[in-house]
């Protein structure tokens, strides 16, 4: 990536450093603009995790998920994946440690991790950076896409391995 960008700029004889600094300055102010958003978001996620609400929710939906053939152990990870990337990685490594990366579960969560995204984080940062509060059908669409990805991962893992 570096080589391509700088190489292309060198061929086109662009003032690289001037433009780099200009862009970096803008990046700087962008981060400062999204910083309060991020603080608010991470506080909400942090308190939710500490309160034990997620475990409670997982406990509630687990029997149902098990009934439809969804691996129970992957429920917390699937949920956390939508909320926090670092927490999801922690849970992923936990599964690798207890079940091994080459188990069915290990393969399934690997595939699932690659086709899902931290919905709440992305949505807050992007929309709040331009001060949009009415997000219409975005959340529904994102959850639908992630749900489709999780189901697809399960079916693909079942049929391939």
């Amino acid at each position: 990536m570096f080589v391509i960008i700088l190489g292309y700029a060198a061929i086109k004889k662009v003032n690289m450093y001037d433009n780099f600094v200009e862009g970096a300055t803008e990046g700087f102010s962008t981060i400062l603009r999204i910083m309060p958003t991020l603080i608010g978001l991470m506080v909400a996620v942090g308190t939710l995790r500490a309160s034990g609400a997620l475990e409670l929710f997982v406990g509630l939906i687990s029997p149902f998920m098990k009934a439809i053939g969804f691996p129970e152990e992957a429920v917390p990870l699937s949920l956390m994946r939508l909320i926090s990337s670092s927490a999801a990685t922690g849970l992923l490594l936990d599964i690798f440690k207890t079940h091994g990366p080459d188990s069915f579960l290990g393969r399934f969560v690997s595939v699932m991790m690659s086709c899902t995204e931290t919905v709440f984080y992305t949505m807050s940062v992007y929309f709040l950076s331009v001060k949009i509060t009415k997000t219409r059908y975005t959340l529904a669409g994102a959850l639908f896409a992630n749900f489709a990805g999780i189901i697809a991962s399960l079916l693909i893992t079942r049929s391939i391995f």
Binding site: L6, Y8, K12, N19
Partner: peptide, 9 residues
């Protein structure tokens, strides 16, 4: 910064 360079080029 790199993006700006890529944009200008």
């Amino acid at each position: 910064g790199l993006m700006r360079v890529a944009e200008k080029s």
